[in-house]
Design a protein around this nucleic acid. Structure first.
Lengths: 113, 113
DNA sequence: ATAACACTTGAACGCTTTTTCAAGTGTTCA
DNA sequence: TGAACACTTGAAAAAGCGTTCAAGTGTTAT
């Protein structure tokens, strides 16, 4: 039984939705891909593991900006860091990343036909 | 040939990236899923087509807030509107939406194990 | 020990986004 | 024609985000 009466069939829709926390986690995940800088970083790391300086050079951005975004991506468990001497090497931490981006790319490209 | 000399192999990574416009389009797409309200709306519309008032009721939000987000989603061509008398009925405009969300959900749920 | 290198961090700034609020449009019904 | 309904819109307030700047950490080389 739901808290309030709703007009015809509306609560049926609500009951079929994933719960609040799941939706928010989902949104958090997609938000990671929702910024060009982060999308580029994830794209680069699909080619190979890279350290911060290399990423900064490739993206033509400051070390700091890249480092901040890597931190965000690390918080979302999408990338992983391994220290090698004074370098910090980053890698994708998740197989899904590639699939999700591929799927998005397919969509974007189909939209252009 | 690239504009500048880069340290070992970095330009090779850059050359393998999708072009700027594609990355930005991709980020724009994922940004749509990157907000809980929009994610919920898209989730609801996967169950069935709905009008603005129903969505507002299900999400427990104002008509205005929902309408604004539907506008954004319409701009991204993820939902479609059809007027029926005084109602505005919204539907998913894209098959990819379901797949993309499903994929994201799989990821989110696996992350919890 | 000192300097150079490769980041990381926190605070601040400007920009964008989301929600609210109030007013406006278009349709239906009496 | 007027009132009710179902949105839509624009502007403004509130919140959130991304980049920069300056300072800080830890590692390596001299």
């Amino acid at each position: 039984m739901s808290e309030k009466e709703m007009r015809g069939g509306a609560e049926e829709v609500r009951d079929r939705l994933p719960d609040e926390q799941t939706i928010c986690d989902l949104a958090e995940l997609f938000k990671m891909f929702g910024d060009p800088t982060r999308a580029k970083i994830l794209g680069c790391l699909q080619v190979r593991d890279l350290c911060v300086g290399e990423l900064a050079e490739i993206l033509d951005m400051s070390l700091s900006a890249v480092s901040h975004q890597l931190r965000v991506l690390r918080g979302a468990k999408l990338v992983r860091r391994s220290k090698e001497g004074k370098e910090a090497r980053y890698a994708l931490d998740d197989d899904h990343v590639i699939k999700i981006m591929e799927y998005g790319l397919t969509h974007v490209r189909e939209d252009r036909q």
